[in-house]
Amino acid sequence: MHDIFVLAEHREGELREITLEILTLAGQLAEQSGGKVTAVLFGSGVDDYAGKCASFADRVLVVDDPMYENFNSAAYQQALALLIKTEKPHLVLIGNTGQGVDLAPSLAVELDVPYSSDIVALTLEGDKPVATRQYYGGKIEGRIEFKDADLYVLAIREASTPAGEGGKSGEIQKIDNPVTTEVTVRKFLEYVEAAIGEVDITQSTMLVSVGRGIREEKNMPMMEELAEALGADLSASRAVVDAGWLPTDRQVGISGKTVSPKLYLTVGISGAFQHVTGMKGADVVVAINKDPDAPIFQYADYGIVDDLFKVVPALTEKIKEMKG
């Protein structure tokens, strides 16, 4: 059996894009192995999502029960483990997302099968998966080989495979909820939206975005001055927000905001995946960073490889001169 299970992910009334991305990846692998792709969808009133999944899968297994209205890894794990034991797929692919990292590792332990996470590329060599992961914030990559097993659970990084066009018409099968008793160890309460502060950086046309490379909070005024000269708002990487140098609503990246300014000028940001995911909508990206191998230069249009403490004041002066 070469069948591939893909866990559908949804939240607050939306099927998340990661689902279609992984279904696309699974489709590519299945073409190679001759297996079938099954989307597994837990939810409550999810016919619409099932339809979307069906155009990317050979089959959609739907468990429709109020228990799954909102994500609860304890309930998901029980249900998924039971389904997997019955259906015996060869691969189970889950998004390496806020939901996936809360579920996939413990599922793999329960099933006693090999697991790896945050996979950026996945291929099959014979029957076995081979995974590529990134290390040290994307500065190097590593190849993961697995011990022989009948089943592998793998968590796939968001946006690592672009979602395809679909075009399949998989069979939608509604099945009974395999979990028959209420899950009590963990209960979903509510979602709380992130607050929006005085500046909504998702609306900014110009952003100067600062990272850990600025080293200390006392260097913030230098960055503010550059932003002011450019008429830009300030945004930041996670590290700067964690340190409290800028409020949370200025964070760009997976757990922060997705921005789409005309100019995104990064200062001292190395360009880890978690950050660059949030800036892909920018028109022109400029990076100032001392390390020529920093991943940020793969995403920037223009780069300056130099000490930011020399470049930023010089640039501020030049912009001021230009504006008169």
């Binding site: 990559e141 080989e145 223009y302 780069g303």
Partner: peptide, 23 residues
Amino acid sequence: TAVMVGYSVPVVGELAEILEGDA
């Protein structure tokens, strides 16, 4: 069960146009 067998330098796509010179 999932062994990292070797590191490699990532294959990078098109890089930024690097501006040369002093600050």
